[in-house]
Design a protein around this nucleic acid. Structure first.
Length: 272
DNA sequence: GACCAGGAATTGG
DNA sequence: CCAATTCATGGT
């Protein structure tokens, strides 16, 4: 177990903000499954204790290397987001591995979080291999090319997403997601929406959560309702106009604005 | 049992 | 181009 010091980072709020689905809170810390690894991560004040990976991985995955100098001001200046920033000052956008992110968010389509978790667990049971760390046992996330059995995925409750995943798996060998980092936001997004089961929302999730496109603004139903209610007096606004609004208002920080809107809206909904 | 959830794809203007 | 409908399944 190693430790590292932090300035502003809130592990708990970050993990519960809808970016990843393979984690479990146990004994004042978290088991986080990523790829074929199991991480144990605990936060005690501004100290992070972790095991199952090295320091470089933690910095990359938790995006502790990110330059957030101009972010607080961008959100602080938005009077609607200011309370969200003050309530969750350590909320961060993680940096996931793109294949796992893409597959996970294809599973997320038309599902709430418990259902998303079940679908992803089913994929790991079907196509992953056993993994263990610190007495915690689980299964690895399927790699590109390993989502081979559409019928099995249907039996395990993946529904119509089974066909998308099987089709995605077919083109996976020629799919270089990392190379999209070198493209413009528009070009990278255009490439992603060509993939089966990937529309603009999921493309934006992959761009924001794994490929460092901080301007990406995924519009799901929570974001749509919140933006309509908070910025447009409750009027119905098309998704395209919501994305344009976000780009105009927050620019390169739209991704973080989205994360604050999503988490804040969901936490408020839970408390009535 | 009807209806809803919630994104993508398809179909019908 | 835009709006309506369909998809698979679990929850109310």
């Amino acid at each position: 177990m190693q430790t590292t010091n932090l300035r502003t980072f809130d592990l708990r709020e970050t993990l519960y903000s809808g970016q990843i689905f393979r984690f479990e809170e146990v004994d004042d810390g978290f088991w986080v499954r990523v790829g074929s690894s199991i991480l144990r991560i605990e936060q005690h004040g501004d100290t992070l204790r972790y095991g199952g990976c090295d320091r470089a991985f933690v910095r990359k995955y938790l995006a502790l290397d990110e330059d957030l100098a101009s972010l607080p001001r961008a959100i602080e200046n938005d009077e609607i987001l200011r309370p969200a920033l003050h309530e969750f000052p350590g909320l961060r956008v993680l940096r996931q591995e793109p294949w796992e992110c893409l597959v996970s968010f294809i599973c997320s389509s038309a599902s709430n979080i418990p259902r998303i978790k079940r679908k992803i667990d089913a994929l790991c049971r079907l196509f992953g291999f056993p993994i263990e760390f610190g007495g915690y046992q689980s299964r690895s996330f399927p790699r590109a090319g390993e989502l081979t059995d559409e019928a099995a995925m249907r039996r395990e409750g993946l529904g119509y997403r089974a066909r998308f995943l099987a089709e995605l798996n077919e083109v996976a060998p020629s799919l270089d997601l990392e190379s999209l980092r070198n493209a413009s936001y528009d070009d990278a997004k255009s490439a992603l929406v060509e993939l089966p089961g990937v529309g603009e929302k999921i493309a934006d999730c992959v761009l924001l959560f794994s490929l460092d496109f901080s301007e990406a603004f995924p519009v799901d139903v929570w974001i749509k309702r919140a933006v309509q209610d908070w910025y447009f007096g409750g009027r119905k606004i098309p998704d395209r106009d919501i994305r344009q609004f976000a780009s105009d208002r927050w620019g390169e920080h739209a991704g973080y604005a989205q994360q604050y809107i999503y988490h804040y809206a969901r936490m408020r909904a839970r408390n009535g």
